[in-house]
Design a binder for these strands. Structure first.
Lengths: 224, 224
DNA sequence: ATATTATATATTATCGATAATATAAAACAA
DNA sequence: TTGTTTTATATTATCGATAATATATAATAT
């Protein structure tokens, strides 16, 4: 596992080649097809995607930006392997920012929006029931992204995305490795929405803390 | 003002060409030589720096990353022109994260570190006394960066840097345009350090809020 | 005159090749 | 053997040129 050569990337149908390559590699990481530590050779990837090296370099820049890849000048790039310390750091900041985001989001959400949020939660459940790790993680990310978006603070959204993306990836991969039963975490998001609808900041903060702590624990990440 | 052609960039003495170009353009923006809205033409810059277009593209990626440039695919890149809304958004998130950073920092700082922080504050003062806008802003950023660094949380540092950099740039430029008297803000940082040394979180939060609010107001940015 | 289409120009996006750098392997000396 | 230098190899960094795309200008029709 982790070798690039076995992966079948999708054909190109995107605005920018580099953006497309970025998405494909990102998905491969989420799906565990590119495991942490795997080195991303520019020319090798260029051949695989049938694009030039420049495209790969730009894609790598984007991967770096969301914390999925780490580059060392003149040496190379590899899929991010977050240390326990880094994981904790990210979770801490994410928790803090997600609280702010939710406080803001509920002020901008009407019934229709809550309906949509519910729909996104159902998407997570659907994937979880079938034990589809990759799909569940993507759906999970989509749900949270929706809340972040609803905060209507662009820099907050972008920041949360950068900080949390590798965490979602990590959870996805760890769960699939441990063949974890996803149904255990299902209730968690329902509670989350309920708290948001109620609108009490204190309660929201609590539930976010619990939600994040729980899901990371389930992914095998110890927090103090 | 804002035309690239009049600027004398420094000769190359850096690890990576793109990193060097990035730094140079960043400094030019801070110094007000590249005002917000100025478009960054890749080939034009390539000629000026006597490097290839690829180098400029990579530098632009980096500028984008710290919020100093905004790129629209197939159209071009320009120096960030933050809207009032975006400014407020950034300040809000920065304030929140800086509080966390300081709480962490003081736990890791010994007397020697506080001495160093004091030294950095003096650097700000020196520039302020001479009304050197650019130097004062850089020194200001250095001081805050030192505190962020002392939090010993890498992602927090990186995030603060991304969020705050364009704000420092903006303050620098606005002050120089208004020919503001920099001595007015001088006391602010002394108070800041005093609060950190005392170590009371509540007081630190207050002073950070005041400090940020004040300095932005002095830069002519209205909050609420 | 106005709107629409065609053409020219500017600019970014992409490519393929070369240069610079780091790593691994081989040759040599103590 | 061990350590040092040399050579070969792999990989990134950089370049210069072409292709694709968007914008501005000119031509044409109504």
């Amino acid at each position: 596992m982790g070798s690039i050569s076995q992966i079948n990337f999708q054909p190109f149908t995107n605005v920018t080649r580099s953006k497309y390559v970025f998405e494909e590699i990102k998905n491969a990481i989420f799906a565990g097809k590119l495991s942490p530590g795997t080195s991303l050779k520019e020319l090798k990837l260029a051949k695989q995607f049938d694009v030039s090296q420049s495209i790969i370099r730009e894609a790598i820049f984007m991967l770096e930006q969301v914390g999925l890849a780490a580059k060392i000048p003149h040496k190379g790039t590899s899929v991010t392997k977050l240390s326990d310390k880094e994981i904790k750091e990210r979770i801490e900041i994410r928790t803090c920012l997600e609280k702010i985001a939710c406080h803001k989001a509920i002020k901008n959400m009407n019934n229709e929006d809550f309906e949509h949020a519910n729909k996104l939660v159902k998407d997570i459940s659907k994937a979880q029931i079938k034990n589809l790790y990759y799909e569940a993680s993507i759906a999970d990310l989509n749900f949270h992204r929706y809340l972040w978006k609803k905060a209507e603070n662009e820099i907050l959204y972008k920041t949360l995305d950068q900080i949390a993306t590798p965490l979602f990836s990590l959870v996805s991969v760890k769960r699939s490795i441990n063949s974890q039963n996803l149904e255990e975490v299902m209730y968690s998001h329902e509670e989350y929405i309920k708290a948001l609808k109620a609108g009490k900041e204190k309660r929201i903060d609590e539930i976010i803390y619990t939600h994040l702590t729980l899901s990371y624990k389930l992914a095998g990440i110890e927090l103090d």
